[in-house]
Simulated assay, not measured.
Amino acid sequence: MSYTNKPKIVVIGGGTGLPVVLKELRNKNVDITAVVTVADDGGSSGIIRDYVNVVPPGDIRNVMSALSNLPSLDLDIFQYRFRSEDKFLAGHAIGNLVIAALSEMKGGIFPAIQELSEIMQVQGKVYPASNEPLVLHAEFTDNTQLAGEAEITAAHKTIKRIWVENNPWSDNKKPVAVPEAVKAIEEADQIIMGPGSLFTSILPNLMIPDISSAILRTTAEIIYICNIMTQKGETIGFTDSDHVKVLNQHLGRNFIDTVLVNTEQVSEEYMDFNRYDEVSKQVKHDFKGLRDQGCRVISDDFLLLRNGGAFHNGERVVEELMNLVGSPSKNKN
């Protein structure tokens, strides 16, 4: 593959994993687009969503900070979260309030993000997956169903499938993607999913029909960065192959081309399970299962131990992603 311009890379997801990759990608000579989930209903984002009827801003805030060229003090202020004893403002991040305010001023989340991107000197493009806040739904293996990301995760049941719906007061009968996000996917050279919560950060984006269709049409290499640890309420007992199987099943086709998996061992003695109560055991490997689904497997030490938790080393991950830009992928040939 040859380029007349910078390689176009689209990163899809949400949560805390996405910024890890974006912080390092912004230092590379690439055209970055981040497509961010809008189904979060927990914490500060959930409260703002309920009272202001705006797309939950938390994931968008973190992505914009990761891509911003502002001085560190400015970003610290934008990311500052009020203490729990602050009553009315308890738990709210200043950036969330700014995004909510701009959404009202500009008549929607999309123009608000574009305006704020200029103010924050964002390197790349940030698009919400949809202009409307979406409601996440799940069906579990016991055939029960729940709505709401926080409720689904807290149920600690095995998820069979998830889907997204508009709020009841929406004018649209089904979720509609931001057209710019769809176009970015169609024109991408590389699409990255993860790291992040499988059912609540990555799949909600893919469950928007316009986005899933674009994913299945694109000629870009699609890369999944598998989580290092399993997650309570979502992926207990999952192998890396199980993660990919869930993605493929939801889109009805084996569409993941390449999977990045960490092979460095995480010491349970190091992990602070009181602080990171959403993690449990290290994801086990099933390389044969991945290859049976048509995946190229890139396995290496992508581990970063920090503050009692296991995270991806963004620098090493992005170094591998840059090696893969332009290389032929198995499923596209």
Rank of each mutant, 00 (worst) to 15 (best):
N5H: 12
G15D: 01
G17Q: 02
L18D: 09
R26V: 01
D31Q: 12
T33V: 11
G46Q: 00
I47G: 12
D50T: 13
Y51P: 13
Y51A: 14
V52Y: 15
N53Y: 07
P56V: 00
P57W: 04
I60K: 00
L67N: 03
L70S: 04
I77M: 14
F78P: 00
R81F: 13
G91T: 01
N96V: 01
L97K: 11
V98L: 15
I99L: 05
I99M: 09
E104F: 15
K106T: 08
G108L: 09
I113S: 05
S117M: 09
K125E: 10
N131Q: 12
N131A: 13
F140D: 01
N143L: 15
G148E: 06
E149K: 14
T153W: 03
H156Q: 12
N166S: 13
K173A: 15
P179Y: 11
V182N: 14
Q190G: 01
M193S: 05
S201C: 09
M207H: 03
I211N: 00
A214S: 13
L216N: 07
R217F: 02
I223T: 06
I225A: 04
N227H: 06
I228W: 00
M229I: 03
M229W: 00
T230V: 05
E234G: 01
F238K: 02
T239C: 09
D240Q: 05
I256G: 01
V259C: 11
L260P: 00
E264M: 06
V266I: 02
Y276T: 00
E278A: 10
V279M: 06
H285G: 12
F287N: 12
I298D: 12
D301N: 13
L303T: 07
R306K: 14
V317L: 10
N323M: 08
V325C: 11
S327D: 12
K330N: 12
